[in-house]
């Protein structure tokens, strides 16, 4: 008798389990698994806006690997990662440590410094597009006031990538500071007291306590920054005009994908670019997982 009741309960549990994950899984299957396969298939076709796409084999991939634009977008993307990720990590650690010191008015300073995290990236791009305007921008006006001649931030191919990086760093430090502040508050003050008794100065405390104990949060900031920068799109798309002298020099893989798939409507080709972006990010993610074991210190 008892075992039959238990069997019934067990069947109920299995049924409940499947039915409660069903809505999620229907969505995951349609919008992710099926979509993933569909994208792979699309990348093997000449799909565009109209008509029935033909299967073209690897033609899109061959076209991509022959296109100088692809290599430039790949190179630009890697440059964004190399420039932005260290800057975001360093600045967000510095700002978080600064905001963690209990000076009077820290609360207000925190609120202010969190603002970019809740601001529309599209608006951030427009704000900076105006600040960096060649003829009438505030930044060139300031440079001129100091006797430096104007810089074509958004059209000089030598400069655009750095201008976009600067805006990206400005816009994403704020979010990461919030993550790091939570990490800082998790460090027990006992460590610092012990260090003070041992006569360690502020700088030494920072390097021997704060940095190692914050390393899980710093790692998180690094990983999310890398992923975000690999997909950098909004700022470039809105700050650099299409078909301008700065377009090619600032184009990332994500903007390249968007232009081909949804401006030129070469969806098959766009799908192939998306696959390339996927492969690049997967390689980096796996490398990070391996790398994580080497330096992140997890508190037991």
């Amino acid at each position: 008798m008892k075992s039959r009741a238990r069997n019934q309960l067990r069947r109920g549990e299995i049924l409940a389990g499947y039915s409660m994950i069903a809505p999620l899984y229907i969505g995951l299957i349609v919008f992710y698994l099926f979509a993933f396969g569909q994208n792979i298939y699309d990348s093997l076709t000449n799909k565009s806006s109209f008509g029935v796409p033909d299967f073209v084999g690897l033609a899109n991939y061959i076209k991509m690997f022959k296109a100088p634009y692809f290599y430039q977008a790949l190179q630009n993307t890697l440059m964004y990662v190399v420039i932005c990720v260290p800057l975001v990590v360093v600045f967000s650690v510095l700002v978080a440590v600064l905001l963690n010191v209990g000076v009077r008015g820290t609360g207000a300073y925190r609120t202010l410094s969190f603002l970019p995290a809740v601001t529309l990236p599209a608006a951030i791009a427009l704000m900076w597009k105006w600040l960096l305007n060649y003829e009438f921008g505030l930044i060139n006006a300031l440079l001129n006031a100091f006797g430096i001649s104007s810089i074509a931030w958004l059209s000089d191919p030598q400069v655009v990538l750095f201008a976009v990086s600067m805006v990206f760093v400005w816009s994403s430090v704020s979010y990461q500071v919030i993550v790091l502040l939570a990490g800082l508050q998790g460090i027990s003050s006992n460590y610092y007291e012990a260090a003070r008794i041992d006569g360690a100065g502020r700088v030494q405390q920072f390097f021997s306590i704060t940095l190692p104990l914050l390393s899980p949060s710093i790692f998180f900031v690094m990983v999310t920054s890398i992923i975000n920068v690999f997909q950098i799109f909004d700022i470039i798309y809105l700050i650099i005009p299409q078909y301008s002298s700065g377009t090619a020099a600032s184009r990332s893989l994500a903007t390249f994908f968007f232009e081909e798939a949804f401006i030129k409507f070469q969806k098959g080709y766009g799908a192939a670019i998306a696959v390339a972006l996927f492969v690049v990010i997967m390689v980096v993610t796996l490398a990070q997982m391996w790398f994580q074991k080497k330096w992140v210190h997890y508190d037991e």
């Binding site: 099926f34 979509a35 993933f36 994208n39 997909q231 994500a254 949804f262 998306a274 696959v275």
Partner: peptide
Amino acid sequence: LMVPGQIFLVPHYDI
């Protein structure tokens, strides 16, 4: 969680 969103966008649009 690890798959970048762009790879789903062409199919999402078609859906």
